[in-house]
Every structure is written in structure tokens, then in C-alpha cells.
Write a protein that binds this DNA or RNA. Structure first.
Lengths: 123, 123
DNA sequence: CCCTATGTTCAACGGTTATTGAACTATTGG
DNA sequence: CCAATAGTTCAATAACCGTTGAACATAGGG
């Protein structure tokens, strides 16, 4: 296991890669869940996403999210803690992440963005 | 040639399909050029995009843009006039299209979004 | 020190996607 | 009616993508 995975610098973050990354339902759900509880704790680990896909498939999506600059991974013991690169994204593409999250929120049920049983408020 | 191509209804427009559509550099350039001169004339036709790709490749991308709900095609004689579905998109995903266009604008040079020689203002 | 938990890496596969050129359709102008 | 124009459709190809399970790596607890 490599120590700390590679991440692009802020300036290296590219719009098409970000949009492509967000266009996958599983990755959108990951980003959505990270954004949804940013104010509680900004980090989640792999196990928090088991409802979305298998471990190895999640690792694949995490790598994509890291490589395109959407997520940071911090290694701590046997865990990897992920968080959104909100500052970098907001600096690079102002309003984009929020617009995507808000749009996703409107369709949360249709997109099966939530682990189930969760209720989403209107609008 | 079919008379008027099929378009999804407003409610059928899906976020992942829209993001995926916008993640392709050629389609992003098409959308960008449509948005860029919305205030002049809201429509452009196939020939206005020859600098981006060949005719048959453009037709492929136009179909994608229509099918995901980003664009409308109006048939007039031998021409097809395309325009953004701005109202539907803004209703469905408020702020998203503008955030994407604005983000693309910042990187217009890097993304080769303009036919060349064009200058983009800062910000 | 071993066992377990956490996650990554690898190889394989099946499906999708972008691109190309050629053939085709439809409309307009002469 | 013929030729030119505008754009689509089709078939073929090559590259890429998501998913899976098995093997691997690492750290921590008993």
C-alpha cells in the first residue's frame, strides 16, 4: 500500500474530468454523502460507503475521485479518510460543486443517493 | 431523415446524463458556443461547428446533446438549428448550466473552446 | 506474534464510447 | 430535372470504463 495517494494540484484540476467523475451515479453518491455531512465531520472512510458498491469497486471510484481533484485521501492506520476538496473546487470552479449537490439533492430519491429510509426535504 | 428528432421532456432530464454529456470536450465546446452568443441569436447550425470536428462526428455529438436534454433541434429546410434548453435546464437544475459555462469560460484557452484568435476576458 | 479488519492492486470480462469514411436522405437553386 | 448543399445513418474500429473476485499489503488487538 502506497503511503499517501497522489492528488493533482489545484491548478491541475480540469473541468471535463470533474464533470465526468460526477456523472457516474456511484461517484455522485459518494460526493453527495461527503457534502451532505460536511458540517458534522468532513471525513468519511471506505466502510461508510459499503451500501453503494463492493470494496474493490469503491477503491476504483475513490481513485477516480482523487485523480480528478474532487477528493482528498488521508491515511490513518488501516483507514483512509476522504473529504471533499471544497476550497480548491470553489476557487477553481465557483458555484459548480454547490450547483451539482443542490441538483442531486432535488433528485436524491430518483438517483438513489441515500442509504435508504432517509427522507429529503423539498426543493 | 426523420422530421423532428426526439427530445426528452423536462422531467426526463437526468443529472448524470447531463454531466456526462458536458464532460466531453467537443460537446462542452458546442454548449459553450451556444451559450456564448445566446443574447445575439439563440440558434446555431451544424456548419457553425465545423472547426470542432467532422460532420458525422458532430451529428453524433448533437444526438447525445439532444438525448440528454441539453439542446433542442429545429429543422428548417436543409438546416438544423440548435439551441440550449436553458429554461428547462434552469428549472430542473438551478445554477448548474451557468456554473458550468462560467467554469468553462475561465479555462477557455486551456480547453480550446474557441475557434482560435478569440480573446477571453479575465474572471 | 498471529489473526483480523481495512482497503488497495491486479487481471479479466463485457459493454460503451468516440471517431472515421462511405452511403444515404432531403431540400434548395438553377 | 439535375446538381449542390446540409446533415444523418451505418458499419467498423480502437480505446476506454465499470464491475468482479482473488491476491496482496498494512496496521492494530489479543
Amino acid at each position: 500500500m502506497s503511503r499517501t495517494p497522489l492528488h493533482p494540484t489545484r491548478e491541475q484540476i480540469e473541468l471535463p474530468m470533474v464533470l465526468d467523475c460526477l456523472s457516474d451515479p456511484i461517484r455522485l453518491a459518494i460526493v453527495y454523502q461527503l457534502a451532505r455531512q460536511e458540517h458534522v465531520s468532513s471525513e468519511l472512510c471506505c466502510g461508510d460507503f459499503y451500501s453503494l458498491a463492493g470494496k474493490s469497486n469503491l477503491a476504483y471510484h475513490f481513485a477516480k475521485l482523487r485523480e480528478c481533484g474532487l477528493m482528498l485521501t488521508r491515511v490513518a492506520g488501516t483507514n483512509r479518510f476522504m473529504r471533499l476538496r471544497r476550497e480548491d473546487l470553489d476557487a477553481r470552479f465557483p458555484g459548480l460543486l454547490d450547483a451539482v449537490i443542490k441538483s442531486a439533492s432535488k433528485d436524491a430519491a430518483r438517483l438513489q443517493l441515500l442509504p435508504e429510509g432517509d427522507v429529503v426535504q423539498a426543493g
